[in-house]
């Protein structure tokens, strides 16, 4: 009981500190998605556009992780590990995505699933709080399990999902809808991910 009370006080203390500053973190993006259309994925009716069909990537074509950075402890010295920071500093993170240099007629959509990925660390004193200020350390897709169209414009990066607390190994699946006018050449495009932390 005393232990829980101490954890609660630590969390509340960190939360109040957090209002002054959200700790810095690092986004890791892994995977080089390869979108290869098969014959079965192409339009079958002459005259219709090829974007009426579409095709999907693997469910984990890209995997992203976001954890807080280790910090040094002033005066005392030493380092607070990433795991410790993530355990004691709980924020809400929103993930926005956009692409660049994709040709007209090419639509890239993305999605993940509810609570995909892994909490980091797996358990935290925050999980045992009677009242969790930001809710449970879950991941919530913006539009359920539906795909979201990724804009080809960094000025309009779109929210795809959000999560509470640090999280690793979040899989992202893509769906491609390409007009017949999109050139049949092997092309590469950048997909950008922006994580924004917040206190609420």
């Amino acid at each position: 009981m005393k232990k829980a009370l101490i954890y609660s006080l630590v969390i509340l203390f960190n939360t109040s500190i957090g209002y002054a500053q959200i700790l810095p973190g690092t986004l890791d993006v892994s995977g080089m998605p390869s979108f290869v259309q098969s014959i079965e994925d192409t339009v079958k009716e002459a005259g219709a556009d090829d974007n009426t069909v579409g095709f999907e990537s693997d469910f984990d074509a890209t995997v992203i992780s976001y954890v807080l950075d280790p910090t040094s402890i002033p005066l005392i010295g030493g380092v607070t590990s990433s795991e410790q920071n993530c355990s004691l500093n709980i924020f809400r993170y929103t993930v926005y995505m956009h692409t660049d240099y994709t040709p007209p007629g090419l639509l890239i959509e993305a999605k993940t699933t509810f609570n995909s990925g892994v909490r980091f660390p797996l358990s935290s004193p925050y999980d045992n709080l009677p009242v969790q200020p930001l809710g449970p350390r879950d991941l919530t897709p913006t539009s359920g399990s539906s795909y979201i169209a990724i804009p080809n414009n960094g000025g309009q990066a779109i929210k795809v999902f959000e999560f509470v607390g640090c999280r690793t190994d979040i899989p992202i699946q893509f769906r491609i809808k390409a007009s017949a006018t999109v050139p049949g050449v092997i092309a590469t495009y950048n997909i950008h991910y922006t994580v924004v932390g917040s206190l609420l």
């Binding site: 500053q21 959200i22 700790l23 810095p24 973190g25 690092t26 986004l27 890791d28 993006v29 892994s30 080089m32 998605p33 390869s34 979108f35 290869v36 259309q37 014959i39 994925d41 192409t42 339009v43 090829d50 074509a61 890209t62 992203i64 976001y66 924020f91 993170y93 926005y96 956009h98 090419l106 890239i108 913006t142 804009p151 960094g154 000025g155 309009q156 990066a157 779109i158 929210k159 893509f174 491609i176 390409a178 017949a180 999109v182 050139p183 049949g184 092997i186 092309a187 590469t188 495009y189 950048n190 997909i191 950008h192 991910y193 922006t194 994580v195 924004v196 932390g197 917040s198 206190l199």
Partner: peptide
């Protein structure tokens, strides 16, 4: 909900950004 990801000063309180490169290969029709 959208942000201007080209201007981190407009939204960053805490967070980070990164990108990966995707390859696209379409069939002849």
């Amino acid at each position: 909900e959208t942000i201007n990801a080209n201007d981190p000063n407009s939204f960053i309180f805490g967070g980070d950004s990164d990108f990966n490169t995707a390859t696209l290969e379409l069939q002849e029709i």
